[in-house]
Design a protein around this nucleic acid. Structure first.
Lengths: 236, 236
DNA sequence: AATTTAAGTGTGTAAATAACACGTTCAAAT
DNA sequence: ATTTGAACGTGTTATTTACACACTTAAATT
């Protein structure tokens, strides 16, 4: 316990210190479905293997700040939805030195962040169904991240983080199908989403997506926040 | 990033190391409702204030192991339901030294662990509604723990961890009312719980609880596990 | 004997969810 | 000019689940 010495002031100096890493599961979505961004390690150990992006916590920053810094440094991305996931602490998870890793997950729209990411030539998007084996305990992290994403997507409007600002109803449905890994009924989905009353239907159509063209929608954050204040709770 | 040097082997030695604490929110339940176990700090800083129990991670153990060790060392408790909650990392959260704390929560049945706890004279149970101000960011931890407990109790049969092995329907209902902080309809509750079909109704009655006596029930873990395999998902 | 206390039980209604079908539009191919 | 196929957009019904609600009984207390 903290009070080892029996003295009044606790003595922290006898306690072990450890390295604290932050690893980040970056989710993206495009027409091929849900994806995760991985980088190929160019240093040992596990050089050449695929890995989540990660870095170390610095003394003068919080975990959230470290996660933002690491994400930005490695991808150029800024202003991204992120959430702390879980802390992983197997004793030998990193063979070089005892390292505890706090995993975060992030959601980005692949298309609108192409520029930043293209500069990252060692980074690649992998379909969630076709992930390579990852280093260390990163597979475990990914598994937990997917489970968290599925739960969150059902209960919070975070899915929109993965879409462009304007999207079609079908894109939204495909996103959910991809996250939840199951097919949804088109008519029921539309009814349910419209019932939430937090989307704006635009007068614009996306003509690329089909011959007929599909109406574009936009998430109305102001309206959503207002509804939350009134007791509304998102649920899909 | 990890690859600072440009050399093949990553150099971890330039990275900052930090203290890693584990703090534990211990929930209990008795006729007065949901409670949390706190200890009065007998060392500086914040001597005399109320605090969660905590300790430091050692180099050769996982966070889960540290949580178990700390809980056992401070309370004598063993074989307790525990789950990692969240990692807290405000830079000045501990004024003595930079410390990141990983919070865990634990569920125990107060009555059946009286013996162990009575030996802990600096520890006290506080009703969830009458908590004192806690040190550091422990209030924040508690808030998150309660939210997590509420979510989990609705979706997993963890509530039984807080009850004796044999309990009455009314005790179970009061537990849920206490966790969810709202009143439930008795008849609907009974219907719902019976519908789950994971309790065994015993031939025994608890005569202390009322004049008439109330039937005792028991959680049937085997049956529950079997039903989960068949796709069942607990929900209250 | 009368009163009090908590236990135990069943039914009807509303709300949410799930199932389900078809006509329209337009681009591309024939 | 016609056909074909792909995706769009919409509404009703059936089923399931959630909720609201009241009385009787056993036992203890007075």
């Amino acid at each position: 316990m903290r009070n080892k010495s029996g003295m009044e002031l606790n003595d922290y100096s006898t306690e072990d210190k450890v390295l604290l890493a932050v690893d980040c599961i970056i989710f993206g979505f495009d027409k091929e479905g849900l994806k995760v961004l991985l980088i190929k390690r160019d240093f040992e150990p596990e050089k050449g293997k695929w890995s989540l992006i990660g870095g170390f916590l610095k003394k003068e920053e919080t975990l959230d700040q470290a996660a933002v810094r690491i994400l930005n440094h490695l991808t150029g991305l800024d202003n991204i939805f992120m959430e702390q996931l879980y802390s992983f602490s197997m004793v030998d998870r990193d063979p070089v030195e005892r390292t505890i890793s706090v995993a975060y997950y992030a959601l980005i729209d692949i298309a609108s962040h192409d520029k930043e990411l293209i500069q990252q030539n060692s980074a690649h998007w992998f379909k969630i169904k076709e992930m390579p084996k990852l280093i260390f305990d990163h597979d475990q992290m990914l598994t937990k991240a997917i489970a968290r994403l599925q739960r969150r997507a059902k209960n919070k409007p975070i899915g929109f983080e993965l879409l462009p600002v304007k999207f079609t109803m079908r894109q939204l449905q495909e996103l959910y199908e991809s996250i939840l890994d199951k097919e949804l009924d088109k008519r029921n989905f539309v009814t349910k989403v419209n019932g939430l009353d937090i989307l704006v239907k635009l007068d614009e159509k996306n003509m690329k997506v089909s011959r007929k063209g599909a109406y574009l929608f936009q998430f109305d954050k102001k309206k959503y926040d207002q509804k939350v204040l009134e007791g509304f709770s998102f649920k899909i």
